[in-house]
Nucleic acid binder design. Structure first.
Lengths: 349, 349
DNA sequence: GCATGGAATGATAGCGCTATCAAACTAAAT
DNA sequence: ATTTAGTTTGATAGCGCTATCATTCCATGC
């Protein structure tokens, strides 16, 4: 025995492998593999013995080996902008409500709106040979798009519509949101309407929202909406700060549309501190319908976005793709949005 | 053409492999692999040519193959309770501030406090052969612990201290938090002190906090603290509801300690709606020092927890382990916490 | 001139698993 | 009994990469 030194290095301590389980039972590796992955292909008595042995020995499938051998990993990477506010969490919820039960694992990554991050992430994530991928937004660098197409896997872009999706997209029109916001605030008789939001370099959705907003104001013959923005992540405190800056620049502002509800909440709190009457003096319209919007007093009017629904649908699109019945669905799905009137735009009885 | 049917199935379309790059340049695969993973081992002119070819051809490393061949994946899975509130996001920030630059990818999973999830997740995640793993909490099923030990990789448990860590732990004592809260509220002259929180089946940290809280009250000779809890995820709205239930059960409550700041905010909002004076009639003490606590008026006193620091330190512990200099550090690190007095416990000038 | 040694590159053998095909066995049909 | 078809199991060949060892090529020093 021990005649030769093994060719391979003494790796991290020897792990239990399929072979160990197979030897233990005196069956072939393939049978064990089947019992685990395609149980219906193994006859009952054997299958039970195998599963029992697997549990007893503590065998855990090596995902790298499995993925390599089978040419792909049952994994769906999701690239979100950030988790620093709760905006994208419902999207994950939606995904989690359908993908795991179809046998897919979800891998969450965030760009934090940093330039170049998406491309790096996409490249890395595709290295796993995932079965599909979910991105947020519809703006990607050309080489990112090339990579995605080269990967020949289904791609779903969420959170936005418009343009030609790489593969499929599920979202809503941010431009339309901006228009709706402007028209609504104008319909309340407001004339000096501003926008408060964050404006990270890569946040083209905000840009489109602002674009729609400004255009609608122009169409209405109203003065150009002042945009007060910062590049930090959206937060309550930032909403406070931006209001202060805004009022310095344009004290007569009588309505504000926000890029996110936490900003609106910050502004509301600052207004209360300064005894500015909301909505009498300034009307506030938030975005995303986060929990805080409905919980403060007065409750913040907001534009609700179908984030959970988007996640669910994105997941379902992928699943139906894998089941081969994908042709029927249109490539770009617009889920719309909903304006919710609350106390910061309407005087409550 | 098409003389033989290939032995292997026509996988997902042929991907660019290392071999393709090597052939393109007329060099060995190993040299390409080195140029990518250990650049210093490849002489300058060749290295540049290789990297150029890689970019031109669009080669992406197959992570499964790489992980299989090298006996592990530069991946650190992190198992958190939930992302449904922003409590754990700073922890991720801390991890992201150190692990990626050391070459590790982070894989986030959540248990959502569901029974059995952690064990399943640990099993699955270990299947990737990660180099280390980060868990939250110090309570795991025996078989989870067995699996972790069997994996022979560094494990860091965050968010809690006490007991014997599987490997290492970084956190603070929830029991001590409970004691501090009770003592502090009592020191303000409060006598009917309650607790409002969530109490998911697996949230042993809440249990320990409540335990410390109740014990401290007993030591002080105060009536047992009423616990009003729910098993849903913590939220502003839930804080409102739980206050309503609490006041029905014990109208004379003059101080409340919360399991999370969003609950405290909900209670504050409900108090304001009901014209209950805070802090005069009821003092509120939150937990975690979330942004909302400092932004509402009156600002909510809270117990700040070092979540970002925990993440950073957990990451650094792993890194130093890989660098072999791990012996010096104690196995369980207590980072403590900090009581922040604000308007909901002290009348502001 | 010829060892000596280091640096750069390449050939080879797996890593642990699954797809494939072949074999063995069973049951039904002829 | 013998074919036919279906079911169950096993042997084998990679998946694409990296660890290892062998080889080649130079510059040194004696």
């Amino acid at each position: 025995m021990s005649s030769k030194i093994p060719k391979t290095s003494p790796r991290l301590t020897h792990r239990v492998t399929l072979k160990d389980v197979a030897h233990d039972l005196g069956v072939g590796m393939m049978t064990v593999s089947r019992a685990l992955n395609k149980p219906h292909l193994v006859a009952e008595p054997l299958r039970t013995r195998i599963l029992e042995a697997v549990a007893r020995i503590g065998y855990v499938q090596n995902r790298a080996a499995s993925g390599l051998a089978s040419g792909g990993v049952p994994l769906i990477p999701v690239i979100l902008p950030t988790l620093h506010h709760s905006v994208y969490v419902p999207l994950l919820d939606g995904l989690y409500s359908v993908l795991p039960q179809a046998g897919f694992e979800i891998l969450v990554s965030c760009t934090e709106y940093l330039v170049g991050t998406e491309e790096t992430l996409v490249t890395n994530l595709l290295g796993w040979n995932p079965r599909g991928i979910i991105l947020s937004g519809i703006d990607h660098t050309p080489s990112t798009v090339a990579r995605l197409k080269q990967a020949k896997i289904p791609v779903v872009e969420v959170m936005d519509t418009g343009g030609i999706p790489v593969d499929r997209s599920v979202g809503f029109s941010h431009e339309a949101v901006g228009i709706t916001a402007a028209n609504y605030l104008a319909s309340l008789g407001r004339r000096s309407i501003a926008y408060i939001g964050t404006l990270a370099e890569l946040d083209s959705r905000s840009v489109r929202r602002i674009h729609g907003f400004q255009n609608a104001l122009k169409t209405l013959g109203l003065p150009e909406g002042l945009v007060e923005s910062s590049d930090g992540p959206s937060s309550i405190g930032l909403g406070r700060q931006l209001l202060i800056r805004l009022l310095e620049r344009q004290p007569g502002t009588d309505a504000i549309f926000f890029g996110n509800d936490d900003l609106a909440a910050g502004t509301l709190f600052e207004c209360q501190r300064r005894s500015i009457k909301v909505p009498e003096q300034i009307a506030l319209l938030g975005f995303n319908d986060l929990e805080i919007a409905s919980e403060v007093t007065p409750a913040i009017s907001s534009i609700a976005t179908p984030r959970r629904e988007m996640g669910r649908l994105a997941g379902e699109l992928l699943i139906s793709h894998f089941e081969g019945k994908t042709a029927s669905v249109e490539r770009s799905i617009d889920l719309g949005f909903r304006l919710i009137e609350r106390g910061t735009t309407k005087i409550q009885l």
